[in-house]
Every structure is written in structure tokens, then in C-alpha cells.
Amino acid sequence: MTKFGEMLGQEDAAKKAIDKFTATFTQAKDQLKGVEGTVAYAQVREKTMWLQGTKYAGHYYEPLGLKPPEQANGDGAELSLEGITKINPDYIFLGYFNYTDKSLPALADEWEKTDVWKSLKAVKANHVYKINGAVAFGYGPISRTYGVNAIVSALKK
């Protein structure tokens, strides 16, 4: 953003945007101080689900003071229904890539009907949150701001 500001002669606007973005994360971390346990972010597609690792979704872990499941350290991994029981997070964010078109299939929709899914800690505690994965798992400040706001809205104590 700094480089774009320099290229466009908008250094002050870029700094203000960066400061606002930084403040969003700082405020979010303060609001999430009471969250205990592990938080898993999953990318939900039609036939697959991926645990988002700290290399990909790290900006939603440490900067927000949230603890990833051990399996999320690094790249993350493709999930199976049985595999998610080994992770058994306290909170799950399902980042649907069909979020705006519910007529498209998503693997999590099938999983939610199973006893295995219903046995998860996050499910039992009603700590499963659906977000727009196409936006939240993007790379820019708009995507990350959406993701942080969705997380805070769900977890704020």
C-alpha cells in the first residue's frame, strides 16, 4: 500500500489506510482477549475442505491472540470428516466459497448431517461460524478487514 501511495502521489492517504488497518487488528485483539481454546479456519469447497494453516491464515491467529490447532501450524492440510475429529477445535470458521450462491454444493453441508460432525466440541457449543471464504481468505486489506470483522462479530465476549 505504501508503494501504491508513492506511485500515485498519495502517501498521506496510504499511511492513513495502513493506520486504520492496523487499528482494526489492534482493536480486534483487545475484543477477543477472553477467547480460550483452539480456533480452526476451514476453506470449504464443493468436494474438499482445507484447514487453513498459519502460513496462509496466520494473520487471523497470532495478531488476534487466537490459538491455532496443532495441525494448523504451517501449511494446514486437506480435511476428512474423521480427520477433523482429531483436531476437534473449540471454534470453527467455515469459509464457504459458495457463500453468495447457496444453490452450489459444499462438502460441509453434507458433514453437518453426520453424527461425527455433531460430536465436535465446536458444534456442541454452537461455535461454528459461516463466513465468505472467497473474501476472508483473500490477500488484500479489504479481504482481511472483512475476515477480522467476521471473527470479532462471532467471538466477541
Rank of each mutant, 00 (worst) to 15 (best):
K3L: 10
K3S: 06
F4E: 09
G5C: 03
G5M: 07
E6D: 08
E6Q: 06
L8H: 07
D12C: 09
D12H: 14
D12M: 14
D12Y: 13
A13E: 15
A13H: 01
A13S: 12
K15F: 00
I18A: 11
I18W: 04
I18K: 15
I18H: 11
F21I: 06
T22M: 05
A23I: 02
T24F: 01
T26H: 09
A28Y: 07
A28F: 12
K29W: 07
D30N: 15
Q31E: 09
L32I: 13
L32A: 06
V35H: 04
G37K: 04
G37L: 02
G37Y: 01
A40T: 08
Y41D: 09
Y41G: 08
A42L: 14
R45E: 15
E46K: 07
W50D: 14
L51F: 08
L51D: 04
L51N: 06
G58M: 08
G58N: 08
P63Q: 12
L64R: 06
G65V: 06
G65K: 06
L66A: 02
Q71T: 01
N73I: 12
D75T: 11
A77H: 09
A77T: 13
E78H: 02
L79V: 09
S80T: 14
G83H: 11
I84N: 05
K86Y: 01
K86P: 04
N88P: 08
N88R: 02
Y91I: 09
Y91L: 11
G95M: 02
G95Q: 02
N98M: 01
N98W: 02
N98I: 00
N98D: 12
T100K: 15
T100G: 07
D101E: 09
L104I: 06
L104N: 13
L104P: 05
P105Y: 00
D109Q: 02
D109G: 03
E110N: 10
W111T: 05
E112C: 05
E112L: 03
T114M: 00
D115S: 13
W117S: 10
K118Y: 01
L120E: 05
A122E: 02
V123E: 13
V123D: 12
K124D: 15
A125L: 12
N126G: 02
H127F: 10
H127R: 14
H127K: 15
K130F: 07
I131G: 04
V135N: 08
F137Y: 14
G138R: 09
Y139M: 05
G140M: 04
R144K: 15
V148A: 08
A150K: 13
V152D: 10
S153R: 12
S153T: 13
A154H: 09
A154Y: 12
L155Q: 05
K156P: 11
